[in-house]
Amino acid sequence: MINLFSLKQQKKDAAAAGGKKTSAAQLRTQKDINDLNLPSTCKVDFPNPDDLLTFNLAIAPDEGFYKGGLFRFTFKIGPNYPHEPPKVHCEQKIYHPNIDLQGNVCLNILREDWKPVLSINSVIYGLQFLFLEPNPDDPLNKEAAANLRENRRGFEANVTRSLRGGSVENNVFDNCMRSGNSW
């Protein structure tokens, strides 16, 4: 099949003109980004277009409790992507059953249910879904979840107040209202 001894004379003259090698994570990310197909309620932007591994996402839900808000996330894709999920962080302090006050997000496909067949697109859809259907059974913000479960009206009022930068249960939240159609 192969014998190094028989090959040894021909070793190298190799100095390739290639330049930097592209990692599997970069290739896969390039594919994911170029294939992005987002609804009009989501927008991504790249602070540095040459670095596809770091970018921002903005979600402006057009229905549900969070309609009228604009929510910002950062994405960081590690060298093990897609073996490991991207790291996603919410940049604002918001009142949400599945997002804690530090911006950690509880979304199954970002941790325990991540699979390499999923993509950036699926993560973005998953995040948007959290705003359309907050899930009280998987709480990171327990008070918000309990509220949603037991007092839907009260929860709705809390969300509305928090989005305007008001306080709920002694926590002051960031103003997340979208002004007009701006991103």
């Binding site: 594919k31 980004i33 170029n34 294939d35 992005l36 991504v44 790249f46 277009p49 596809l52």
Partner: peptide, 17 residues
């Protein structure tokens, strides 16, 4: 979507890029 030399030359999506 075209990259090379560690740079992004052209991407068809997303719109901002």
């Amino acid at each position: 979507g075209i990259r090379g030399l560690g740079k992004t030359f052209y991407m068809s999506a997303p719109p901002s890029l």
